[in-house]
Every structure is written in structure tokens, then in C-alpha cells.
Design a protein around this nucleic acid. Sequence first.
DNA 1: TATTTGATTCTT
DNA 2: AGAATCAAATAT
Length: 198
Amino acid sequence: MKISPAGSILGRPYFDRPTVQVARSLIGKYLVRVIEGRILAGRIVEVEAYVGPEDKACHASKGRTQRTEVMFGQGGVAYVYLIYGMYHCLNVVTEREGFPSAVLIRAVELEGQLIDGPGRLCRALQIDRSLNRADLTAGESLWFEDREELLVRGAVGAHPRVGIDYAGAWAKKPWRFRLRSAAVSSRARGTKKQGGAG
DNA sequence: TATTTGATTCTT
DNA sequence: AGAATCAAATAT
């Protein structure tokens, strides 16, 4: 069955930009997953940027290995890995080929519920390593959509990243972006049925 | 081959 | 504060 997106699918050029910029702009976009012909769309509310070989928190800072290989590739590709033996984390690769970087998707609003945490997110959307290296710009079973929701000014907060204390000075970089709750206009939320873009 | 670690989450 | 649980990285 043919599935048509409710917004425009983010393409390769979107991800072929500075990682922090991509991360910040992904807030308010939608992560769309197809499971057995049905669609689940989660509104992205928290992400983290992992930026290149110098960033000690970035897996790829240790060099090109079998696991990190995908981060060195072109943007718009999924990097999914198993963490702590139990949970999967979903990232989308950014920037040009040869520059290892990605954005970790940490939280979404899914059917009115906050799915908070990369592990829970992947569990809710049935994302595992079978999606590693998948092209997220092709509109197949997982992609990002722009539904032209407007965020109010100052809606996106920047904070230090989580769980990377080992990264020294890099742990302090404000590369986690999170939507401040209630910082979205009622129009953007669609609660007034005014039709998105305004 | 053996040991350690980790972009987490849940329980105690 | 600790367990669950394992692939990948590092040490040997």
C-alpha cells in the first residue's frame, strides 16, 4: 500500500549542513516510522549533536571502525547502535562524506505522549540495528518530515549532553537541544485547527 | 582470547 | 546506588 507523508520529507541537502545547525532545526520536525503499513509520527523535542573527529563524545573520535564507519558517510543515513546491551539509539548522519558526525534523537511526542529517552524512543518506534545504514531520505520505512510548524522565539533550549562525562571539556558543550514545554504557539501545536504555517 | 566500557533505563 | 546485558573497543 502506498503511504504518503503529511509533510515534506527532509532530503540529503538538509543533513549536509553543520551538525549543530541540523540538530537545532530538527526540533519541531517529525520522525515518521512505518510499521506493517501503519504510520507512527513523533514530533521531535530533544536531540544531541555529535560533531566530528575532535569531539571526544562522538563515537567516531576514536577513528573509523566497523561501527563508526557509517558516520563517515553521506548525510541523511541512519546510525543505529546497541547500548548497554539493552537499548538502541537512533542517529541521523550529517555533513559531508568523510566528516564523521550525527544527531542523536533523544525524545519525541508520539500520539500525545512524551517518549523521553533514546532507548525508549527506539523501543516505541521499533527501531533496531536492522535500520543501521538505512537511507532516511528515501521515504521507505523511516524518515524525517517538515510539517511547517512554527516554534515561538526562544522555544529551543541548549544544554550539555547527557551521559558523556568521559569527554572532558567536550562534555560541557551545549549541544543538546530541547523544546521548552509550553514554548510552542497554540497554532503550531494545531490545537486551534488553524492550519500550521500561519 | 580476555577484560572493560558504554550517547540507558529500571529497580532497590 | 546497582542491575540488566552485550557489542565493540582495548588490552593481553
